[in-house]
Amino acid sequence: MQHPLSLKTVIGSDIEPYINGLAQLRIEVFREFPYLYDGSIEYETSHLNTYLQSDRCIAVLVFDNGNLVGASTGLPMEDEKEVFKQPFLEKGYNLANIFYCGESILKKEYRGRGIYSRFFEERESHAKHLGGFQWICFCTVERPADHPLRPDEYQTLDPIWQKYGYNKHPELTTTHRWKDIDKESESDKTMVFWMKEIG
């Protein structure tokens, strides 16, 4: 029997009590393909500090009996790190018109229950409530189809994102560094942006 899940949306500095839980959840879920991320709490809490600096950020949190099992975040692109901003500046976008969606992560056993779509709905609703945004976007890692750690049963989320109205923009890419779970050191990863017009 499945437990009923509860969703909680927090805005701005109200995210602070959940930073450690978010960090741990990111490390767990992003170990899976395609990220294969071998993360640390120290790095994650530093990364999530960006959200503490934005009074317009959102975090959609999913709990099972008080335990954090899923989360999705977003904030105006103006409040993000330079590595996210630069591709848009180079292509002539106005950052003030763009809302950026961070992770949408959910522990395996809670998938397939309609939560993923709620993540997108809640973030888009927040962006519209703030007003002034023409675009909403996210980015995802690019991995080769023949990657040795790609599970046989792995299915790309591209059709789902397209169903939600997002389109891949290969001209908008950025680079991140992290250590893969099967490697000894960090390496650069190409991240590509997906966008949807909401204005």
Rank of each mutant, 00 (worst) to 15 (best):
G74R: 03
L22R: 08
V29W: 04
Y116F: 13
L95G: 03
Y116T: 07
F99H: 08
I98W: 05
V83R: 06
F99D: 06
R56V: 05
D14V: 09
V29K: 01
E78A: 04
K81H: 15
L5Y: 02
F63Y: 05
V29L: 02
K108M: 14
V29M: 02
F30W: 07
F84D: 14
V69E: 13
L75F: 00
E80K: 11
E90A: 07
K91D: 06
L36Q: 05
S13K: 08
D64N: 13
I105M: 08
I58Y: 02
G39Y: 08
N20W: 06
M1S: 12
D38Y: 01
L5H: 02
E90I: 03
G112L: 01
R56Y: 09
N94W: 10
I58E: 05
Q24G: 13
D38E: 11
G102R: 14
F33R: 12
D55N: 15
E121L: 14
G21Y: 03
E124C: 01
L48D: 07
Y18H: 12
N20A: 14
L22Q: 11
L25W: 01
S40L: 03
R26M: 14
D64T: 08
V60I: 14
N20G: 10
G112S: 00
D14H: 10
D38T: 01
Y110A: 02
T9G: 10
S6P: 15
Q53H: 07
V10Q: 02
D79I: 03
E82Y: 03
K85V: 02
S125Y: 15
R118E: 15
